[in-house]
Nucleic acid binder design. Structure first.
Length: 407
DNA sequence: AGGTATTCACATGAAACTATTCTCTGAGTTAGG
DNA sequence: TAACTCAGAGAATAGTTTCATGTGAATACCTGT
């Protein structure tokens, strides 16, 4: 772009009135002063945690609910209030919130404990120390001063799925050895059957109390959206019925409020970029597509090389026929590897990679039996042709392969 | 025809291995007193 | 002698490989009619 044109563009941009009054309030974890339709859950949580104010140990809590039902928001909200009260009254309560899904931060036993210690201001190396050494340091650190620790473990299922429940066992057991301090665990999970895989001992001590977050229904999502929209946009900018439609979209997806808010935000961004003044219902469709596209593009570009080749093979084979099998993918994959001078991985591993791609929602892999001709996975692509083409393009650019070459 | 046994082509699981990143320790080296 | 350097041992972790075992149903093979 020419320099003049560009600066002109920026000036225009500034002159243009923004659609947003306060875009911040459409951010996912923007904490509101009021949370709609979660009064019961808030009350329950507060009741359970309140004993901490009398320096008694609150029961451990387990919070269930699907994504976007306000679990994290509620937990943060309640603990924030609790903390404020505690500070006023000079009651020693410490609250630590950890999201166990964050890579490199808290997704293993070692890292979680190390992260907790960092909250206490201890320096813990990211590797090199034995795990029980870290436990010891943790133990001593907590013991140093008398206080109640409320530990919120978000997405706890991820952690346990990966590293087993030993960590939870240790944490629940640690209480009996502490003289001064006490720990209360608040586990948050969106996997409803998660506790089934836990050791019974852990299960019973972790879920002394349970709180369930049901999905929002369409009306409730509407309310939530309205509340946020009122803050976010200048008035009269939304087309009539847009909120309702947006809520309907989200209610279809098991009442995920997070989804709804994102949809609204993206729709607004599209409108703004197109320099329109009003957000229309049709923008929601565009927004939905854009979100999906961004998600896929993001996933594909960040895949490791081997995964990309597997995906490339899959896409290529899928172009020719609708049902393809693991073995076929592996054959093509091996040839492609030769082409890019990469040592091929074993079929065992490729099987796992296919599962991973399936989990990410890019492809669908279903185990079927072809009777006499063995058992395998039937694999197909999940996306529409626009996105598929986009994927192919990314992969070709990235791998330096040719689409039309015969392998 | 009807029933049973085989068999394929992988799936699925567990354990072991590899490579990388990092700490800690103690031996050897160096510089200053 | 104190400070410094540096190699080696031990850990955590991610990504694989190796080895072992499992498995659903289309076929092959019987069996008795």
């Amino acid at each position: 772009m020419e320099e003049k044109g560009l600066s002109g563009f920026f000036e225009d941009y500034l002159k243009r009135k923004s659609l947003f009054k306060d875009k911040h309030s459409l951010q996912l974890y923007y904490t509101l002063e009021q949370i709609f339709h979660r009064e019961d859950q808030i009350k329950q949580t507060a009741n359970i945690l309140a004993p901490a104010l009398r320096e008694e140990k609150p029961s451990n809590v387990f919070i269930y609910g699907k994504t976007g039902t306000g679990k994290t928001l509620t937990a943060k909200y309640v603990t924030k209030q609790l903390k404020e009260t505690a500070q006023k009254q000079k009651i020693p309560i410490k609250i630590i919130y950890v999201n166990c899904k964050l890579k490199k931060l808290a997704d293993t036993e070692y890292r979680l404990i190390a992260q907790l210690l960092r909250e206490y201001g201890e320096e813990i190396p990211i590797t090199g120390l034995p795990t029980d050494e870290v436990y010891n340091i943790f133990f001593q650190t907590i013991e140093k001063e008398k206080h109640t620790l409320i530990l919120i473990l978000d997405e706890i299922d991820q952690l346990v799925g990966k590293t087993g429940d030993e960590l939870l066992y240790n944490l629940t057991r640690i209480n009996s050895e502490l003289k001064n301090a006490q720990i209360t665990l608040v586990g948050i999970s969106n996997d409803l059957v998660f506790t089934d895989i836990l050791d019974p001992r852990v299960k019973s001590s972790l879920s002394e109390e349970e709180i369930i977050f049901p999905p929002y229904n369409a009306m409730q999502i509407q309310n939530i959206l309205q509340q946020r929209a009122k803050k976010a946009f200048t008035e009269g900018i939304l087309e009539e019925g847009l909120i309702e439609k947006c809520a309907a979209y989200a209610a279809r997806e098991h009442g995920d409020a997070r989804r709804a808010i994102e949809l609204l935000r993206v729709a607004a961004e599209i409108t703004e970029r197109a320099q329109e003044q009003k957000i229309l219902i049709t923008d929601l469709d565009k927004a939905e597509k854009k979100i999906e596209k961004d998600r896929i593009v993001d996933i594909v570009t960040t895949q490791p090389k081997q995964h990309k080749i597997v995906l490339f093979s899959t896409l290529k084979l899928c172009e020719e026929k609708k049902a393809i099998f693991t073995g076929e993918i592996y054959n093509l994959y091996e040839n492609l590897c030769k082409d890019v001078q990469l040592r091929p991985l074993t079929q065992r591993r490729i099987g796992d990679i296919i599962t991973e791609l399936d989990m990410l929602g890019i492809i669908t892999a279903k185990v079927i039996s072809k009777g006499r001709y063995g058992r395998t996975r039937e694999i197909s692509i999940n996306t529409n042709s626009t996105i598929t083409q986009k994927m192919v393009k990314i992969l070709i650019d990235d791998l330096g392969l040719e689409w039309n070459k015969q392998y």
